[in-house]
């Protein structure tokens, strides 16, 4: 990933959600996955704004599913990590883990 294209915090969460959800990653499931695991009430608009940005960077791809009745006959848009996205996520998580490793939490604040 070129310098200056480092993942933002929410971008990282979205990519992690995609990695966890696999084939079942779409707006609602991504929002719920992040909300449940982080305790944050994430907005679907924020999710899509970030997904669109990640897709523009080539880190995710998407495809339209079939319409369903519970969605008022509207289709889902499924997202998945691209190879570049998986690489960027791994790099980002390694950097984060490196920063966290050995940190003395008791001595903070």
């Amino acid at each position: 990933m070129p310098k200056g294209d480092a993942l933002g915090g929410f971008e990282q969460l979205i990519l992690l959600a995609l990695a966890r959800l696999g084939e079942e990653a779409y707006g609602v499931s991504i929002r719920k996955e992040i909300s449940v695991r982080t305790g944050r009430d994430v907005n679907i608009g924020a999710v899509y704004a970030t997904l669109d940005r990640l897709e523009a960077k080539g880190l995710t791809s998407s495809q339209t599913g079939e319409p369903t009745a519970e969605r008022g006959g509207r289709a889902k848009r499924y997202f998945r990590l691209t190879g570049a996205g998986a690489g960027a996520l791994e790099e980002s998580c390694r950097a984060f883990a490196g920063m966290v490793k050995g940190l003395n939490w008791g001595g903070l604040g």
Partner: peptide, 27 residues
Amino acid sequence: SEHLIGDLEEEAQSHPPFWLLRHVLLA
């Protein structure tokens, strides 16, 4: 987009109206 409205519609089945209104405004 159709998928954003569809997601909100799906969420509306399991959340109270105020929750939906707040999320629609934020969206």
